[in-house]
Write a protein that binds this DNA or RNA. Sequence first.
DNA 1: CAGGTTTTAGACCGTTAGGTCAAGAAAGGT
DNA 2: ACCTTTCTTGACCTAACGGTCTAAAACCTG
Lengths: 191, 191
Amino acid sequence: MGRPRSFDDEVVLSRAMEAFWTNGYASTSPAQLAGAAGIAKGSLYNAFASKRELFEKCLDLYHRQIGELAKGLMEHPGTTRECLGDALRSVVDSDFAGPRRRGCLIGNTAVELAGQDAEIAQTIRRMQDDSTGWFAARIERGQRDGDVSSDLDPRAFAEHLSNTLAGLRVMAMTHEAPVLHRIIDTALALL
Amino acid sequence: MGRPRSFDDEVVLSRAMEAFWTNGYASTSPAQLAGAAGIAKGSLYNAFASKRELFEKCLDLYHRQIGELAKGLMEHPGTTRECLGDALRSVVDSDFAGPRRRGCLIGNTAVELAGQDAEIAQTIRRMQDDSTGWFAARIERGQRDGDVSSDLDPRAFAEHLSNTLAGLRVMAMTHEAPVLHRIIDTALALL
DNA sequence: CAGGTTTTAGACCGTTAGGTCAAGAAAGGT
DNA sequence: ACCTTTCTTGACCTAACGGTCTAAAACCTG
């Protein structure tokens, strides 16, 4: 009962996410968010309690999306090293696809907000741990396949990969693709 | 001639730098900057044309300071691997020294501003290249000392180290020291 | 189709942003 | 001692911030 929503929440969320991603949390105003979503500010605030809550939902959407992506990438054929290399390369290349560098929403948020907001920090940490988990799972599979030395600590190496990825997405703001590809090769050299 | 400055520019710059570092560019207001520096807003604007110009000078101060630091660290005794490991560990540990995580001003600025501002992006890039240069120089020395395999490409490995460092300072926002130390060990394992 | 309920758009609000300005204070030159 | 110059402070300015509210509109139920 009552007037139905004229917009799809997920679409609004997705557009808002893009805005936050390109401009950062502080530098994205409610007016911009509403504009990007194609609805009025009042409607935005009717659907989401605050800028902050909207942002958290955007973060979550981002996380779900990259989760899907990661799942797919980790199942690609090839050796563990090829698979992980392809995955990192495809993420880096996607950074260069758009007209503006914008890195990773999760990493950017870690930098912008984790230091001032313990709740956000915790959320971000969980998301990062998920990434590490996907890497670790792929490495463990590599060890079962006899693809990766069993001397290697999957957890430690996965952390290294997460760290490398976090670095790449900062470096992508100011470097060109060949440099980043070389970094990927070096980071994977000990596999 | 004229009334003399009641404050030392470098001190004001240094305090402003701390404020920008902990809060980010957008989230640090002129009022906060003046407050942190212990002078009135008017005086701040008399000494520096704009928030933007002040920020650029802060960035430069930061860069000069870490340049000094890096120069010292790269001259520490020990093997190349020990030296680089100690250097990375000491940077990471310094992230945990203060009450609030705040990462690296240069990396944070890359994330916050490089995507929207080509001039800042260039500045940041030059600073990052300097870091890579210091790493490369130390690795080359290691090769001359017979400490590091001559098969290793110093430039490529230095880029890998810069990337690892960029990652570490993002990860430091949400992770504890032991994880980061393990990452350092893994990143250096192929030396 | 009336009544109840929710959504819509945009006017509106108090606060703060980044920045300017005017009045006085502190120096050097003559 | 006075004049010029520069600095200092806090009041002041406009625009934008994050958010609220109201009146009209659109749907569902009975």
